[in-house]
Structures are given as structure tokens and as C-alpha cells.
Computed example of a mutant assay.
Amino acid sequence: MKIAIVNDLPMAVEALRRVLALRPEHRVVWVAGNGAQAVQRCAELRPDLVLMDLLMPEMDGVEATRLIMAETPCAILLVTADMGANTARIFDAMGHGALDVVDTPVLGGGDLRAGAAPLLAKIEIIGKLIGDSVPAGAIAARSAAVSRGTRARQLVAIGASAGGPAALATLLRGLPADFPAAVVIVQHVDEQFAAGMAQWLGQHSVLPVQVAREGDRPARGTVLLAATNDHLRLEPGERLAYTPVPRDYVYRPSVDVFFHSACALWPGDIVGVLLTGMGRDGALGLKALRDQGHHTIAQDQASCAVYGMPKAAVALDAAVDILPIHAIAPRLCAVLSIQPKPGGHDGP
């Protein structure tokens, strides 16, 4: 993989070089000392992956991510020395299309390979996303959905990945306090950021946003966010559970796994929503929902930070509606026969 490093600290650059040298399939194609240089270098030679620092002079990693994804989009992995102190910046960068975040490896005492493992694992996952290699048969066959004649309760199932935080904030901002459906979100994000992301999304929503815990039941007017690296799924009794299988599935947590389980076991109406993201996760699940007669929505290309997951869904004819992000909340309100909140179309 052709990898670029964006970091203003020579020690951090050297640490990243040494980690990448452990894998001969990776090659550093260029190094930039700030975000402005990175934007220029991407235009000259677009890499497969950018390892992007957040705090840099002249232009930080958030703005650089925004410009790169707008002008010469490629995979971006945030690499920062203090993830806890940079939570807001991390979500901002992910809203512009960054895929994930990892701690900067540290040179010094100890086993370099052990210290390099988290970064190399993230790079391997992103490499699979770029190659779109989803193991055949990764999702087990699901049981048939119950008769629509017995359905009463309503569920909005949302999947998102790269660019998802900003898209989710826009969507949630448009939902009114009397929203009549339960909302469950599966966003590709490392579990250490799930709680912080729920709090951040809660600042944009009049509905309460919480992490989904084992045994929770989706409830009307409440937003639940998948909270671990295991897959969230619906179990009998309308209870949520986490499962490590399929273990070899590249997307964790998987939108497809949740969509399929909801399609099989939710005893009411479902509206499936697939937002911005790299790869194909959620496309097959959205198709299954539509095939069972549920309403489905995909975000349109123009408003996506990364037009991958919705594109795959559109190619499968999985979406009833293809809409810009600001139009999705009003459409949900229309489908569920309620009036949208005034001003719900504003951006994040």
C-alpha cells in the first residue's frame, strides 16, 4: 500500500516509518509537515492511505482532511498522541471522511512490534476496505420476517461510516421531540469513542442519544448507538445483543448484521437509512429490508463525504428514496406521518 505521513514532529514521523517498515507491502510515498503541504502533495501524488496528525501549524488535520476528501479523496487514518484530549477534532475529521483513529506509536524501550500492532491492525482493515474484500458467506441466512399485518411499532435503523458523524448530526437535528419511532445507529467507530460520540450527537439532537447496551430494547423517541467492536444485532424479544461473529467480517460493527437481524425479528415497521461510508456494508441489508416491504433511504452522492455504501445500495436497487442528507429527517417524518421540526434542514 502507498502510504503518506502528515506530521510536524520528526520523532513521530520516524516512529511511523519504523512501524511501516515492519510490513514490506507498505511504502511511504511522501511526508508532509502540515495540512497545507498534505493537500498539495495529495494533488501531486494521491496515496492509498494518509496517516494524518490532528495538531499541526498552518493547517490542522481536520481542515486538511476536509480539503483532501473534497479535492483528491483517499483513505485517511487519524494518528494522534492524545486521543482523549482531541475527541472533538476526531469527530470533526471523521465527519469530513476520515475512517478511523489510532494512537501515535512511540519509539523507545519495549517491543516495537507490540507497540506497532494497533496501527498495523487499523491499516490492514482499511486495506480490506479499499480492496472491498468482503468474505463470501460472511452473513448467515436470516429467518423470514413476520407478517406485516401484525406490525405496529416503528424502528429507524441507520448505518454510517466515513463521514457519518456530521451526517448523523444533521439527520438527528431534524427529528422532533415527539418522534414516534425507536432509532438505532450502527456507525463504524472504535469502541473507545462510542460513548463520546453518543454525547457529541446528543448535543445535536432533542432526542436522547445513548450507547446501546446488552439487553436494551429500542424505545420510541430514543436513539441507541452501537458501542463495541462486536456486531450489534436484534434478538428475540426485541432485545439488543452483541456478537463477535462473523469474526472475519471487515466491517465492525457491521451495518449489514444489524439490518438483517432487524429485518428478521422486529415485529413492526422499519425504515432503513444508509449514509455516507467507504465500502459496501449495509447495502445487502438495506436490500433485504426493501424486499420485505420496508421503506429504505440512501444518502445521495452530492452530500456524501464518501459515496461508497450508499452507491452499493443504489446499484442493488435497495433504496426507495435517494436523498441529500438535509432531506432525510423530513422524509422520515413524512413516512412516519408526523410534521418535521422547523429548521431541521440546517447543516451541522
Rank of each mutant, 00 (worst) to 15 (best):
L175Q: 01
L175H: 01
L175R: 00
L175D: 03
P176W: 11
D178M: 10
F179C: 10
P180R: 08
A182M: 13
A182E: 13
V183I: 15
V183C: 14
V184S: 09
V184G: 05
V184A: 10
I185A: 08
V186R: 02
Q187E: 00
Q187L: 00
H188G: 11
V189M: 14
V189E: 06
V189Q: 14
V189L: 15
D190M: 02
D190C: 10
D190R: 11
F193T: 03
A195M: 09
A195P: 03
G196Q: 14
G196M: 07
M197W: 03
Q199I: 09
W200G: 05
G202W: 09
Q203E: 15
H204W: 14
S205I: 07
V206E: 09
P208S: 09
P208K: 02
P208Q: 01
P208T: 04
V209Q: 00
Q210T: 08
A212P: 02
R213F: 05
R213G: 12
E214Y: 12
E214S: 14
G215Y: 13
D216C: 05
D216H: 12
D216A: 11
A219V: 05
G221Q: 04
G221C: 06
T222V: 15
T222Y: 06
V223N: 10
V223A: 04
L225V: 09
A227T: 02
A227E: 02
T228F: 06
T228N: 10
D230G: 00
R233I: 11
L234I: 08
E235L: 14
E235D: 10
E235H: 14
G237H: 13
E238Q: 15
E238I: 04
R239M: 06
L240W: 09
L240H: 08
L240R: 06
A241N: 06
A241D: 07
Y242R: 07
P244N: 10
V245I: 09
P246R: 04
Y251K: 02
Y251Q: 06
R252I: 11
R252T: 13
P253K: 02
S254V: 04
D256R: 03
F258D: 02
F259K: 03
H260C: 07
S261C: 00
S261L: 00
A262W: 05
A262C: 14
A264P: 03
A264F: 08
A264D: 15
A264V: 10
A264E: 15
L265I: 08
W266S: 04
W266R: 04
G268E: 13
D269P: 04
I270G: 02
V271A: 08
G272L: 03
V273F: 06
V273L: 13
V273C: 12
L275R: 02
L275Y: 01
G277Q: 08
G279N: 11
R280F: 11
D281N: 11
D281Q: 12
K287D: 00
L289K: 03
R290F: 07
R290C: 01
D291C: 07
Q292R: 15
Q292M: 11
G293R: 00
H294R: 10
H295R: 08
H295P: 00
T296P: 03
I297S: 07
I297Y: 01
